[in-house]
Design a protein around this nucleic acid. Structure first.
Lengths: 224, 224
DNA sequence: CATAAATGTTAGACTAGCCAAACAAACATG
DNA sequence: CATGTTTGTTTGGCTAGTCTAACATTTATG
């Protein structure tokens, strides 16, 4: 069964479950899903039960949610669509990287596999989207760089930004103004846990700034 | 209310009603709509009643269907979306002109106004789609060339193809093989109404061929 | 370790789109 | 111009997604 035979909400559920374990590894809860999708927990509970009946997730009532191999395949397909679309919107249609998330969120349910292939070809098989997130290959193999959040990086370390969460467009605009984007090099000057601040220097322009914890959690880095 | 607030089926209904009067001028019937949309008449009857309640169509039971000004505005927006998307798929993503109809049919419900504007800009504000159909401007003004179907053209006339109906992809592929596309010049050699055949010469390559009535109705021409 | 708080599930109701079958109006023709 | 055929409408039923409110289970804590 192709992914396009799933309802759009089933596609959203699978993608969300997969995304939750892309960077952390704690499985997502019904409540957290409801929160992210903007629906009530009862809706998600019901939806998950239907996905389980279709063999796309494993779920015993009141217990955790796991993707089956088939479910994971569909989820990765949706993530691939989303990230290729984001890249396409930026590269080909002159969108800014902070504008593409919502547009891709809708388009990913409407595009055909043919269109995705054409985009992939036109862009030369890109491996990262505009926020630095890896684009899974057509065969579904993901590649997860050994990155961690800026908030958890030791002071004194030289790092390179790998990815920036695209969840909050306002935050993305702020990062863009500061010159923070994938591949930007930073030095972590200090962590002040009680103030929830991370102090960094941006090597490209020498600016020293403080980031709150929401920001320092959204930026993922690897040692330079 | 923006067009994106309508359900996708409402968008389809409005577009279809508008399209029915683009080239002919007989208003469409419930039955014809059902046929084109692949649903039963009862579904359409119900849908039209809802559109009337929203002030998008005028419809007294058992009588004809007319778009209100608001309804027409939304319909033209959808036609504009469809034709710009078709053009974009051909120009930017290397689709063939016979492949784009179905893809655009789905995408037109998912794209934002912003995306349509970006496409329009990228393509340099095109005025015709790959099949020769006029693309309504953003302000909704359509432009309808003084064209008529090839089937109704006097023998001996020199004509230029203005548009080719995109309803049937197989037919489009056949036309493409013959070299029939917008701006191709033809001479109508004869009309044989009882055999339902139109005999033409393609000026570009000198070929003389017969077209059945379905084909000769799908090709619209103007005197050269 | 019993109980309260947090979390998840079920039940019943609503909307939108669709269908089949029963019904109503309009139209076409003998 | 009356009647039968064609066309359109209504009714009741189905699915999918959503909600609220009632209920059940798990977890955390006093």
């Amino acid at each position: 069964m192709p992914v396009s035979d799933l309802t759009t909400s089933a596609q959203d559920y699978l993608k969300l479950i997969w995304s939750a374990t892309e960077w952390s590894s704690e499985p997502i809860t019904i409540g957290a899903m409801a929160e992210r999708l903007g629906v009530t927990p009862s809706t998600v509970s019901d939806g998950i039960r239907k996905l389980a009946k279709q063999g796309l997730v494993e779920h015993a009532p009141y217990r955790s949610i796991e993707l089956t191999p088939t479910g994971r395949e569909h989820a990765v397909t949706m993530v691939r669509r989303h990230r290729l679309l984001e890249t396409f919107l930026v590269e080909t249609l002159n969108y800014r990287w902070d504008e593409v998330h919502d547009e891709a969120e809708v388009l990913e349910h409407a595009v055909s596999d043919t269109l995705i292939d054409k985009i992939d070809t036109l862009l030369g098989h890109p491996t990262r989207d505009p926020h630095g997130d890896p684009i899974p290959a057509a065969d579904g193999t993901p590649h997860r760089p050994a990155a961690g959040p800026l908030a958890a990086t030791e002071p004194g370390t030289n790092v390179t930004i790998t990815r920036i969460s695209d969840a909050n467009p306002d935050m993305l605009r702020y990062f863009a103004e500061l010159g923070l984007k994938p591949d930007t090099r930073l030095t972590v000057l200090g962590q002040r846990p009680y103030a929830d601040l991370t102090n960094i220097r941006i090597e490209e322009n020498g600016h020293e700034i403080d980031l709150g914890s929401a920001a320092a959690e959204a930026i993922w880095v690897v040692a330079a």
